[in-house]
Design a protein around this nucleic acid. Structure first.
Length: 286
DNA sequence: AAATGCGACAACCGCAGTCAC
DNA sequence: CGTGACTGCGGTTGTCGCATT
């Protein structure tokens, strides 16, 4: 037998939350912390399902939420991340401290979509609207690369936002931004060694961030696991900083897990290529 | 002043992956 | 090991407030 049912839907409130409900939820989480959403409503004296409580807390009541208008920098970052990730709102939110996936999703649908369309850009493909119809099945990320050469975490950006430089493959040497998933011909494995800085998200990177390299059987993992690792990679800033704040050695352990060469050279688990050096919390070739 | 339209955003729904039993 | 609950995510809907007619 499995677990007992999540909640009695027949006896739960729906719709907008009242101030009293909010206060109960806040008080409870302040005292007991997050987690165990299933039992939370009953313990907190709320006639809500746990799922609803979780959503309310994450999207509205959390004290670290940054309310108010999005800045231009946040706008740009959302657009860039969306061009890379598509509708992976939680991942995008992970790069925007104080913003929630729901908030970003709504903002995208109500503001940015329109903004892009008014600029003649297809919000889904991030290509000019005229050419969007002409292109085939190429995904938005298929030709977009992250360029870590000049990535900064502070320059011209709000605190804690780290923006890899985003480049289109058209502006790069092909050798720097190969993609095995596009209609382009596949390069031989050796050729991939040349792809040292510009990283094709569809193919090249994806790291099980919290794990050490020995746990990273990702090279042989399923495609979904790989793509999850790719997305996990895009979350690391907070974790790296947290680890660095804990102890330098912790940060080193975390950083060691980030040998980008593994992904492009096909090294086996735990192997670090001879040219690896630390860079922005990652290890990669120079 | 009332009716209508529209934008913004909170909340819900359903699905998939994970994990406890 | 199979079943089913839990959790988190993305898509969609509902509701509210403001602007326009």
């Amino acid at each position: 037998m499995g677990r007992s049912p999540c909640c009695e839907k027949a006896h739960t409130n729906k719709g907008a939350w009242t101030k009293e409900e909010d206060q109960r939820l806040i008080n409870y989480i302040r005292t007991h912390g997050e987690g165990c959403w299933r039992s939370l409503p009953k313990a907190a004296g709320l006639l809500r399902c746990g799922k609803s409580c979780r959503l309310r807390w994450i999207n509205y009541l959390r004290p670290d939420l940054k309310r108010g208008n999005f800045t231009e920098e946040e706008d740009d970052l959302i657009i860039k991340l969306h061009s890379l990730l598509g509708n992976k709102w939680s991942l995008i939110a992970g790069r925007l401290p104080g913003r929630t996936d729901n908030e970003i999703k709504n903002y995208w649908n109500t503001h940015i979509k329109r903004k892009l369309i008014s600029r003649g850009i297809d919000p889904q493909t991030h290509r000019p609207l005229n050419s969007a119809a002409a292109t085939t099945t190429t995904t938005p990320s298929a030709k977009t690369c992250l360029d870590f050469r000049n990535s900064t975490s502070k320059e011209n950006t709000p605190d804690n936002i780290c923006i890899p430089k985003i480049v289109n493959s058209s502006s790069l040497d092909d050798t720097k931004c190969n993609s095995s998933t596009t209609e382009e011909s596949l390069p031989p494995p050796q050729e991939e060694k040349k792809a040292t800085f510009a990283i094709d998200l569809e193919l090249s990177i994806g790291l099980p961030f919290q794990s050490n390299c020995t746990k990273s059987g990702f090279l042989n993992s399923s495609s979904s696991a790989e793509s999850k690792a790719v997305f996990d990679f895009l979350r690391p800033q907070v974790k790296v900083e947290a680890a660095a704040a804990a102890t330098p050695s912790t940060a080193a352990v975390v950083a060691k897990a980030m040998c980008l060469c593994n992904w492009q050279l096909g090294l086996q688990k735990g192997q670090m290529c001879s040219k690896c050096q630390p860079f922005n919390g990652l290890f990669r070739c120079y």
